[in-house]
Each structure stands twice: as C-alpha cells, then as structure tokens.
Amino acid sequence: MARRFGMALGFLAAGMAGAAAQGWQPSKPIEFVVTSSPGGGTDNFTRMIQSIIMKYKLIEQPIVVSNKGGGSGAEGYLVSKTAAGDPYKVIFGTNNAYLLPYVAKLGYKFSDLTPVAALALDEFLLWVKADAPYKTAKEYIEAVKAKPETYKMGGSQSKDTDQTLTSILSTVTGAKFIYVPFQGGGAVGTQLAGGHVNSHTNNPNESIGQWKAGQVRPLCVFSPARLPAGPKVTETQGWADIPTCKEAGIPVERFQMPRTVWLPAGTPPGAVQFYEGVLKKVSETPEWQEYITRTVQTGQFLSGDSLKAFVANDDKLSREVFEREGWIVK
C-alpha cells in the first residue's frame, strides 16, 4: 500500500515536473513512420509503443501509424528529408538509420535525423540444426574452418545486421561461410529447420518456436552477459543456459541491434524532449516490460548523450566491416 502510494507520488511529481517544463505540446495528429513492412520487428515495436501510449493516454492527439519499409527501410528515413523540421513525424527503426547510407546511394544522410531514444537491444544468437553434431560454438567454427566456403549461413537481407555479424565472425575466427540472404527471420528459420542451411544468427524471438520443437538449437549469444533466466524454453534449457560467445571461445564481445526512435533534423528541441519523456514513460510501464521479456530483448533506455555514444560506437564497428567487405558506395 505504502509502496503504491509512493509510486503514485512519484508519478505525480513526474507529471508536475513535466508541467513545469511545459515546452512543446502536439496540437494535431501525429504520424508514426515505421521503417519496415507490416509484421516486421520494427512494426511490432512501433505498434506496441502506440498501444501503450493510447492505453495510458500519454499523448492526447491521435496517432496514425504508416509503414514505409521500401528499400530496407530507407523509404521511412527519407521522411526526415521531405519533412525536415516537422515534429509530427516520428520515425521508428533500428541501426539501419545510420548504416543504410553507407551501402546504398540514398536521398538522405544520417545528419537528416535527430536521435530521440533507443528503447531496447535485440540480441543475436548462433543457431544450428538440432541434430547437428556440434556441441559447442567452438566445435562448429572448427568444422567450418576445416572446409572453407561449404557451410551455409542463412540471414535476412543483404549487407544488413546478419551479414555484418557473419563477416565479423569470419574475420575473428577465420571461418569462411557462404552467406545466403533470405527475406526475413521467419524464412531463415525454416531453411535451417529444413536443413537447407547450416546455421543462422536469428534473434531469440524469431527462433524460439523452433527451439521449443527441437528443430534448432542455439550455440551461443553475442552479448556481453548471458540472457536473463526466464521459464525454461525446452525441457532442460532456458535462455540463461546459453553461453555467451565469448565464453564459448569466439572473441566477439557483443553484437546487438538497437530499436531506435528518430525525428527529422531541425525539429524544435522542445519536441525532442517531449517525445523523449513520453518514450521514457512507455519504457517504465509493465506492458513494455512484459513485451521485452516475451520477445527476449534487452530493455535499455538510451537518450541524449548515452544514445549518441552508443550510435558512435556501433557506427564505427559496422563501418569497419563495410569497408573490409567493400560494401560502401561512394
């Protein structure tokens, strides 16, 4: 009881602080631009946030969600250029916001976007077919090294996170894969379950069903620490039982994909603060926590300088890979 009262006080205080900083407030409907097609990871992320905002009435104005997933999401980010300075266009995406302009000739630059926040980090795991002979990630990598360019690594899209990770993996271990790009994590998962590729690096959420069914098996997670223990996924194992790749002897410290929110450049700082505040509140709701746990992402709210630092670091890492692979277009 006392705790609940305390929380209510906290909310009240937050509300008053908000009222004190009463800067920018939306005065007409807001458009949430999704940089993926309906049903994609970014789409779920956006619609989850939209439904939480609606439920808690965090924004009074109506919200319209529109999918602009063309060109791997570039179509959505282009809104930042065509609607420069418009605080009513909020763009939802991943790290491809700053990575896409490297690999394709696009009409926008990263500087056309104003960072607002990142709400979650999606994890990557190394998966093999359940009946594959490899017990550990190390064993699998050794097998790949023994026969270079015969093992197939499936992934979604080309020159995107999956292929970047595959490239990093090849560089640090010397194991050479054939990378096969498919359309989306679901298709990749099925290809592995059917034995048409040897491994993939799907997000937990994309392959949990197949793991449960004993079709595929994770070897390691590309995260600095093990995933939080939840209920067991299979009879014997849960997420926390998967070693980190570093533990498993693969020197890749971390590879995570941030789920990010942007505004067009030139929007008033007050608007940036407003959305930052709203998203912060979203990230503190029980619904959001539940969504994060269910989809096995890592909930981490980044904004302002912490976000900038993360982006700079991620950008540098990926850029090195792109340069090495010769993907960068001039």
Binding site: S37, P38, G39, I208, G209
Partner: peptide, 28 residues
C-alpha cells in the same frame, strides 16, 4: 507451424502472434 507467412496478410498476423506472446512453430 513454421512461422512462415504465405501472404502479406499472414505476415501481419504473424507479427500479432508474437506480440500476443505466442511462438509460431510446431509446438504451438
């Protein structure tokens, strides 16, 4: 059963499935 959408609409429903906390797959 596979998490593989056979049409654009099925792709959207698949997204829904994940949000509702269901994991597509044979175990469903």
């Amino acid at each position: 059963a596979l998490g593989l959408p056979g049409s654009a609409t099925a792709a959207v429903m698949l997204g829904g499935l994940m949000i509702w906390g269901l994991n597509p797959g044979p175990m469903l």
